[in-house]
Every structure is written in C-alpha cells, then in structure tokens.
C-alpha cells in the first residue's frame, strides 16, 4: 500500500507542477493569482476528452487541447484583463467571476456526470521491476512533467523570451525602460499558463477523471504550492508540488478526517516564518 501511495503522490506532484508552474509564472509577472487556473485545468480535461471522442489519438488531442487553451488564455488576457489596466484587485476578481462562468458552462455542456478518459493505448498495463508493479500511465505522467519542467527551465534560463520574462518578473518598470514590451509578455505567459493547465487537466483524466468541482479542488492546491514554494520560482513550484502530492495522498490514508487541514499546515508554517516561500526572494 505504501508503494501505491508513493506512486500516487509522485503522479499528483507531477500534475500539480504542470498546473502551478503557469500559475507561478503569471503571478510572478502580472502580480495576480489567476483564479481561473483551476477552471483551465478542468476545461482542458473536458476539451481533450471531447476531441478523443471525435476519434483523435490521445496525444494529438493533448497537443490540440494545449493549443486551444493557449488561445483561450490569450483571449482572456487581451479582452478582459488588459482593459482593467494595472488594477490587480479588479483583475483578480474578474478571474474569479470567470471561473464561475466556466464552471457553469462546463456543467451545461458536459453534464454533472464524471467523465472517464481512456488511458492512452500502450500505457494500460504495468511494468515490473524488483517485484514491484509500476502502472505505466502514471510513470508516463511523471516523465512528461519532468520533461516539461526541464523544458520550462531551459526556456526561462536560456532563451531570449525567458530572459525577457525574467526581466519582467524582477522589475517590470525597468524592463519597460530597456525596451521590453511587458504587456506582450502578459499574453505569452497567460497563454502558456492556460496551455499547461489544460494539458495537465487532460493528463489527469485517466487517473482522476473529469467532473464538476474539479476546478475548485485544483485551484487551492495550486495556491498552496505557490505559497509554499514561493512565487516566481520554478524550482519552488516543483518542490512545492511534490510536497503537496505526498501530503495529499498520505494525509488521506493516515488522517482521513483532517487530510485537508494537513495539506494547508505547511503553508501556514511557511507564512509564519518565511512569508516569501521556500524558494522565493524578498522583493
């Protein structure tokens, strides 16, 4: 049982990373928690499963989902958030309102029944190693999360776009002075965040299945991951995701009554003693 729990924890950690990496980037750059992030996750799952029902291959559906979510992300940023100018509080509340709209529209389209996403062909079974059975799909999820983590890290640290994002995160006014169009970066980062969240939603499908309320379950998780790991730190999001992945699964078995509380305890401790998060910097 401990073994299964560990596998589940690592899988959830990987999914949470995909969800919270974008959340963290958006927060770092735009200084707002995107409260539609959980909705993007759920919407990605629903969109993906719809594409699969049209006969698309799981992986093609996943890539298409990411692209569609990116487009939705850009639309939300350009059409709704940008007109509010720099008023962060109004932007946050708008993302909150949007999350209700998405939740209800999803309920209308995909009904209240949980939607099972078929496991992609070839990954249904398990692999044995040292007499332990590893479910293949979960291994694949973790592998993909790691690949994306490395890819994101390379993008942030090694590319021109990454350099601009870092500059924007560190000091937006200064970035503007040296000629970076910070507002254009907002769209890019919002699209990226939405794409990652939607992609994660579909990845979660075969494992969690997709159902109404998934959005409001995932959003707080992204929130605590980012508070725990520190905003604008990818490493923080990664470490935070796995901590929460383990706490979530082990907590539910060990302290079923208080699992949810245990999930938030490290966050409270961090807030008390290190408000900038484990890997965050004081600005």
């Amino acid at each position: 049982m401990w073994f299964i729990l560990t596998i589940n924890s690592v899988t959830l950690g990987g999914l949470l990373f995909l969800l919270s990496a974008g959340f963290s980037l958006i927060f770092g750059l735009m200084r707002i928690p995107n409260l539609t992030h959980g909705s993007f996750f759920m919407l990605g799952g629903y969109l993906g499963v719809t594409l699969i029902r049209f006969g698309l291959n799981f992986w093609i559906a996943a890539i298409l989902t990411a692209l569609i979510m990116a487009a939705i992300g850009v639309t939300v940023e350009r059409l709704l958030l940008r007109p509010l100018g720099g008023n962060a509080m109004q932007q946050v509340l708008l993302t909150l309102g949007l999350s209700f709209i998405i939740a209800d529209l999803s309920l209308m389209i995909w009904t209240g029944d949980p939607v099972r996403v078929p496991t992609p062909p070839g990954l249904e079974g398990t692999a044995s190693l040292f007499a332990l059975q590893f479910p293949l799909y979960r291994l694949a999820v973790v592998g993909i999360a790691v690949i994306i983590a490395v890819g994101l890290w390379l993008m942030i640290e090694r590319t021109r776009l990454g350099a601009m994002i870092r500059a924007g995160v560190d000091d937006a006014p200064m970035a503007r002075v040296v000629g970076i169009r910070v507002s254009a970066l907002f769209s890019v980062v919002f699209a990226l965040g939405a794409a990652l969240a939607g992609f994660a939603g579909l990845m979660a499908g075969p494992y969690l299945s997709i159902y109404p309320g998934l959005d409001s379950e995932m959003l707080p998780l992204a929130l605590i991951v980012v508070i725990l790991g520190g905003t604008n730190s990818l490493l923080g999001a990664l470490v935070g995701s796995f901590i929460i992945g383990f706490l979530f699964n082990f907590g539910q078995v060990l302290f079923p009554n208080l699992a949810y509380v245990i999930l938030f305890l490290p966050m409270l401790v961090i807030l008390m003693f290190r408000p900038q998060g484990l890997f965050g910097r004081l600005t």
């Binding site: 928690p33 509080m89 946050v92 707080p220 208080l258 699992a259 949810y260 938030f264």
Partner: peptide, 20 residues
Amino acid sequence: IGFLMITLAIGQILWGVAYR
C-alpha cells in the same frame, strides 16, 4: 493580493474541516 490569497486558503481549510 497576498491577503486575498491567504484568506482564500484559510477559507478552504475551514471548508475542508466542515466537509471532511
């Protein structure tokens, strides 16, 4: 914004207590 995020999180904890 930090205050908003913490209140959201603590609200969730209390919801978790009530629910679970």
